[in-house]
């Protein structure tokens, strides 16, 4: 059997808006191998955010199975999910989601703190190296509001990489950036893919989605098309 990083079987998710039942995912199945670069595309309301939350171990599905590096995530409790998020997943968000009061270095250190690395000097060193890799070695003492949007997203990428996750989960990573900076960010993601990282990119922009080698199109909570990009 091939080394499947993600395996999703008949995944379903319902939630309630007031008394109205919303079927966000209505039975989705796919597999992603280690080292793949996959885009998940769809219009708003297609269920792609819900799918991303479940893949990111932030939420439980209502039905179906989700295996992450062979582990049945649906059977994990809150605590184990937190450990999975810490160890297996690196998030890159549209809103960057950095802590505004902490320096870039401290922001990148956060996953290391929750990983239980108590040696502060060791943490600092790892975080500094990660920031140098995204070209921000000279910005470690700055705070997020002192740098540009593109630089913030690079800090977020450094933070996503710092625990060597099994997948990098990027949710509209260029959504809050101008097109030129967005290109820069996509180049970094492209480079990460070439270095062998598994990347799942959630977007509604076709140009961005086309960076991936495979695009899963979602519509109304179902997979509309699973295409391989040439």
């Amino acid at each position: 059997m091939k080394n499947r990083t993600i395996r999703v079987e008949n995944l379903k998710k319902n939630y309630y808006l007031g008394k109205m039942k919303v079927e966000a995912l209505r039975g989705i199945s796919f597999e992603i191998d280690s080292g793949e670069f996959v885009s998940i595309m769809g219009p708003s309301g297609s269920g792609k955010s819900t799918l991303m939350h479940i893949i990111g171990c932030l939420d439980y599905p209502t039905g179906g199975k989700y295996y992450l590096v062979g582990e049945d995530v649906t059977k994990l409790d809150d605590n184990q999910l937190a450990i999975f998020r810490n160890q297996k997943i690196g998030f890159v968000f549209q809103q960057f989601n950095l802590l505004p009061r902490a320096t870039n270095l401290k922001n990148v250190e956060l996953p290391l703190i929750y990983a239980g690395i108590t040696n502060a000097r060791k943490r600092e060193e790892i975080a500094r190296k990660a920031l140098e890799e995204v070209g921000l070695g000279d910005r470690i003492a700055h705070r997020p509001n002192e740098i540009s949007g593109g630089q913030r997203q690079r800090v977020a990428i450094a933070r996503a990489l710092v625990n060597h996750p099994s997948i990098i989960l990027a949710d509209e990573p260029t959504g809050n950036l101008d097109s030129k900076t967005g290109l820069d960010i996509m180049k970094i993601i492209q480079k990460l893919y070439e270095e062998g990282n598994t990347i799942v990119l959630v977007t509604h922009e076709p140009e961005i989605a086309r960076y991936a080698r495979r695009i899963i199109h979602l519509k109304d909570g179902l997979i509309e098309q699973d295409e391989v990009v040439a």
Binding site: G56, N79, R85, N86, Y114
Partner: peptide
């Protein structure tokens, strides 16, 4: 939001 970020990065409830 900060709580959400911390949780996404692996903070457990007890943290």
């Amino acid at each position: 939001r900060e709580i959400g970020i911390r949780k996404a990065l692996g903070a457990r409830n007890k943290n």
